[in-house]
Computed example of a mutant assay.
Amino acid sequence: MDSALRAVENPDLRLVRLTLADASPQTMQDEAAAVFELFLRREAEFGVHPSVVIDHPDISDRSDKGFIGDAARYVAARSDALAAEGRAPDRIVVLTTFGDLVGPSLAAAGFESTVIDMPAGPDHTCAYIRGPAMPAGTGSTLYVEAVNEADEKIKPAFALKLVDGQGQLHGGVCGSIHERGGRRYAYLATLTTAAEAAQGTGTFLAEELFRFLRDQGVSTVHLGTQTAAAFYRKLGFRVVHRLVPGMRTRMVGGREVRDDLVMLAMDL
Rank of each mutant, 00 (worst) to 15 (best):
E196H: 15
V221S: 08
G182V: 07
T192R: 03
F210L: 11
E207S: 12
E208W: 13
F204Q: 01
R183D: 15
V244Y: 01
T227E: 01
L243D: 01
R180C: 07
T192V: 11
A186Q: 02
T192W: 04
Y187M: 03
T227R: 00
L205C: 14
G224M: 11
Q216R: 12
A195S: 15
A194E: 07
R184Q: 11
F231N: 11
G202T: 07
R242S: 07
G200Y: 07
Q199W: 11
T227Q: 11
T225R: 11
A186P: 03
R214I: 15
V218F: 06
A228C: 04
H178P: 04
S219H: 12
V221L: 13
V240L: 15
K234D: 13
H178G: 03
V221G: 01
F204T: 00
G236F: 02
F237I: 00
F204R: 05
G182H: 06
E207I: 08
V218T: 05
H222A: 03
V240W: 10
E208M: 15
T201K: 04
H222E: 06
G181V: 06
G181I: 08
R242A: 09
K234F: 12
G182N: 04
R211T: 10
T190L: 08
R242C: 08
R180A: 14
L223W: 01
E196M: 14
Q199R: 13
L235W: 09
K234I: 10
F212D: 07
A194V: 09
R214H: 13
G200R: 13
F237Q: 01
L188M: 08
T225I: 10
L191Q: 00
V244W: 00
Y232N: 00
G236I: 04
L223T: 04
T203A: 12
G200C: 09
L209R: 02
V239Y: 05
A198F: 07
K234P: 02
T190K: 13
G181H: 03
A194K: 09
R233M: 12
S219G: 15
F210S: 14
